[in-house]
Nucleic acid binder design. Structure first.
Length: 817
RNA sequence: GCCCGGAUGGCGGAAUGGUAGACGCGGCGGCCUCAAAAGCCGCUGUCCGAAAGGGCGUGCGGGUUCGACUCCCGCUCCGGGCACCA
């Protein structure tokens, strides 16, 4: 047997062996404690890129580590295989989306397997498989039955590039499509929605208890956007039978309302606009309709063209005085009541508008003395010009103002959320069909479960018209109404692919369950996911939808009702940048892992990703990267020679400290590596392994006794196993026999973690001046005495008595001169 | 504008309030070799110094402390999120 390490042969052989022996398969009757480690399932983009490598390496370290710790780790893999790129490729003259997608799945799967990441492949899922489509549709019907799915006409985000509607979440803040970059238009269309808003409060409140990155939780909080305040009605002076209802977070400032505003979309606009104002109002409505969201949301541009007086007035319930009613595009039809009370003195937007239209500004909160005086003051302070609220602070005044509105029967406390219902219909082919038919007699009728799945027809033609090919496929369109048996038209919308990814992690618990979407026993065994790993890019969309779906499925009886949160712990790994930009296929700046697999092997590339920096931080793929990869490869060679090759003692080698010192290092390294893995400190874990390796070399050179070295190498290989699984396995088998990945994870013995003698630092005025070898158990008095006796200290004190001595034995003594 | 992160050698990065720069990359030197590669060993923050040794040093300015990369206050720059949401 050659001592040379044949990377390609060894890696291929162990990968086959893990698969053949089912090392990482788990089953329901597994007696070991169950746990669940999951990487976000990928959109199959073909060959893996470095981002995948990083993601799956991190996940794989945890799977292997926890397996060695004695857990039955559920580690499944699947593909988020519906989605626009496949369809766009077909339109451009490529293959059918199915062929295109499946070819790419095969490619990605090969890369993932080549990496040596281990999965229970029996559980592989693909969103576009008929089986998954069926359960997706069954879930949809259940949500429909419970009113959690509904159809409504709504102003929607239409992307002209993608020729489909987008969820609010898919529109970037600048009003462009997150995928194509086109400017998103507003259109009124009948669409399917999921009632995620029903869970707004729960989704918000439950965030606190999650072990997730704080910034992800913050993003979700912002997205849900809870604001508390009051809602109340104001009668229209000119037409007392009409009233305008407004929402405000600042009912305490009601006395300062000097005008009110309707959104251009508000249904009352037409009714309250007087004849002489009609021209102006009409012009504004036209403008608002024409304007893209970008223009409308921009604070640029002349304000005086963005509002108009309706000619009517409403009565301010606090003062009893009439105030003018305006219509303005800075008020959104889709939030709150679509109308506001305007308080220029305490709201900057209202202030700017009031200035442009010459409306009065009345302060109701006394600003602090140092307040610049220009513009609105939205902070806290004593109320003024506010009748019964005078003198109160904001909180007190709010409570009292709401009380006042309630007593008057015109209003009440109110909470509003920024979160809107989730628009799930897409006018595209390559997605899960929405399983309903439209019957001229019975309306919208769900397809009965016995007829599911509704599958996509294969024989379709993709044309660059932008219209879904389903709309012109006679065979697909033609259906029978399940109620009346008459002719009906099949729904041609498909589901947002985020629907697919909102429950796959639960299906993984038993992906072959044939009776229901979820096997509850299996779901209960593994859920929630203990470690969920993926990119920060999904901080809002996927993670919020998955949280919603987990709850909704529980509540409609498909999932376990008690499991509310899908991901107990979330880890977001940093991005990989190249040339200052995120590495991504769409930017065309990907570095393929394949050349690294060929040159240095999977272990070295894995080690690079683990070692390059903290997993949470972004890393730059730079000129230095290849050199570091080489370094990782070199390190593995060093381990290999130590374990399998010939490393011998060296004449004149310095004393390495003997077997006791080596044993202490074995245990301290074990402790460090274990703790580092738990906190995703993979870079420092690898550093610790390198230190131990260097140390073992020193001990070998210095002829430390073979038993201690043998023990050290064994532990090194065991600790290295999650990081460089192939080399560790091969070296371990050759040297010790047996399979390292089924060994028990080493445990640090605390007895070895304390040394007999340690180096004590002696400082004078906080500066290190000397180091003394002392017994670890040294007391304060003795440490002080030793420090004061130090030549350096004597010299620096120059005969004077120290003013103070701070002793922290056995680590440090600080002498204050 | 608001809310989060971050800033440490030539580079990637380590450091429960207690030896700043672990580990690695790069560089320099030595051993091995006919030679090279590989490997093994050592040095490598900066300034002064032949050396011993000493000064300075974690974005900037203050503060707390015997002692601050670490905690507090005030800035600068970089990255990210949110932003007419009433």
């Amino acid at each position: 047997m050659s001592d040379a390490y044949d990377v390609q042969e060894v890696e291929a052989r162990w990968q086959r062996r893990w698969e053949d022996e089912g090392t990482y398969r788990v089953d329901l009757d597994d007696p070991r404690p169950a746990s669940y480690v999951l990487c976000m399932y990928p959109y199959p983009s073909g060959r893996a890129h470095q981002g995948h490598v990083r993601n799956y390496t991190f996940g794989d370290v945890l799977v292997r580590y926890r397996t060695m710790k004695g857990e039955a780790v559920l580690s499944p893999f699947g593909f988020d295989s519906f989605g626009l790129p496949a369809e766009n490729a077909a339109i451009k003259g490529g293959a059918h989306p199915r062929e295109y997608t499946e070819a790419r799945i095969a490619e990605l799967k090969r890369s993932v397997q080549r990496l040596g990441a281990v999965y229970d492949w029996r559980r592989e899922l693909r969103s576009h498989d008929p089986d998954y489509i069926k359960w997706n549709q069954v879930i949809f019907q259940a949500l429909l039955g419970e009113g959690l799915a509904y159809r409504a006409e709504a102003p929607v985000n239409w992307c002209p590039g993608c020729q489909t509607v987008l969820a609010n979440e898919q529109v970037l803040p600048d009003g462009t499509c997150e995928r194509s970059g086109d400017v998103v238009e507003r259109r009124n269309l009948e669409q399917w929605f999921f009632r995620i808003t029903r869970y707004a409060e729960e989704l918000l409140d439950a965030l606190d208890a999650l072990d997730w990155p704080e910034r992800v939780k913050t993003m979700q909080r912002n997205w849900i956007g809870r604001s508390g305040g009051a809602q109340f009605k104001m009668a229209v002076c000119e037409q007392p039978e009409l009233s305008v209802e407004v929402f405000t977070t600042r009912p305490d400032t009601g006395f300062g309302m000097t005008y009110a505003v309707l959104a251009p979309e508000h249904p009352l606009v037409e009714l309250v606009t007087t004849g002489d104002q009609e021209g102006e109002v009409r012009e504004l409505l036209e403008r608002a309709k024409r304007s893209s969201d970008i223009e409308r949301l921009s604070s640029e541009g002349a304000l005086d063209k963005r509002g108009a007086f309706t000619g009517s007035h409403v009565v301010n319930p606090f003062t009893g005085e009439p105030v003018p009613l305006y219509v303005a595009d800075y008020v959104l039809g889709s939030y709150g009541t679509g109308a506001i009370m305007a308080v220029p003195a305490e709201d900057q937007r209202d202030y700017d508008f009031a200035k442009a239209y010459g409306l009065p500004v009345v302060r109701t909160v006394e600003p602090p003395a140092d307040f610049a005086g220009d513009g609105a003051y939205s902070g806290d302070g004593p109320h003024v010009n506010s009748g019964f609220l005078d003198g109160l602070d904001n909180e007190q005044a709010k409570a009292k103002a709401i009380e006042f509105l309630e007593e008057g029967g015109v209003g009440h406390r109110m909470v509003n959320y920024r979160l809107r219902d989730w628009l799930i219909s897409r006018q595209r082919y390559w997605g899960c069909p929405i399983p309903v038919v439209h019957c001229p007699i019975d309306g919208i009728v769900p397809v009965p479960e016995s007829e599911l799945p509704v599958l996509l027809p294969e024989d379709v033609e993709f044309r660059p018209t932008g219209e879904s090919p389903l709309k012109s496929h006679e065979g697909f369109l033609h259906a029978t109404c399940p109620i009346c048996g008459g002719p009906a038209v099949r729904e041609t919308d498909t589901m947002d692919t985020f629907v697919d990814s909102s429950w796959y992690f639960m299906r993984f618990a038993d992906p072959r369950e044939e009776e229901r979407p979820l096997n509850l026993t299996a779901v209960r065994k593994y859920m929630p996911v203990d470690r969920y790993i993926g990119g920060i890019t999904h901080a809002i969309l996927h993670l919020l939808y998955a949280r919603f779906y987990t709850r909704a499925l529980g509540d409609v009886g498909i999932g376990p009702k008690e499991i509310r949160e899908p991901f107990a712990q979330l880890f977001c790994q940093g991005m990989i940048r190249l040339g200052g930009r995120a590495m991504s296929k769409s930017r065309g700046n990907v570095v393929s892992p394949n050349e690294y697999f060929e040159r240095v092997g999977a272990d070295a590339l894995r080690l690079f990703h683990l070692f390059a920096g903290p997993p949470v931080e972004d890393i730059d793929w730079s000129d230095q990267t290849d050199e570091i990869v080489e370094g990782c490869s070199r390190y593995l060679g060093r381990v290999w020679r130590l374990a399998v090759g010939e490393v011998t003692s060296t004449a004149g080698a310095p004393d390495a400290g003997g077997p006791d010192a080596l044993r202490r290092e074995i245990h301290s390294t074990t402790a460090r590596v274990s703790a580092d893995i738990e906190r995703y400190g993979f870079n420092t874990a690898v550093a610790a392994l390198m230190e131990l390796t260097n140390s073992i070399y020193r001990h070998v050179h210095a002829s430390t006794d073979a038993a201690a070295v043998d023990e050290a190498v064994r532990t090194l290989l065991e600790l290295l196993a999650p990081f460089a699984p192939h080399l560790a396995a091969e070296a371990y088998e050759r040297r010790y026999g047996g399979h390292v990945h089924v060994q028990a994870w080493p445990v640090a013995d605390p007895a070895y973690l304390v040394a007999d003698r340690v180096t004590m630092v002696v400082q004078v005025n906080g500066k290190v001046r000397d180091r003394i070898e002392v017994p670890a158990a040294i007391g304060e008095d003795e440490a002080t005495a030793l420090a004061l006796a130090s030549d350096k200290v004597v010299e620096l004190l120059g005969g004077a008595a120290p003013r103070r001595v701070v002793a922290r034995p056995p680590k440090l003594v600080n002498v204050v001169a």
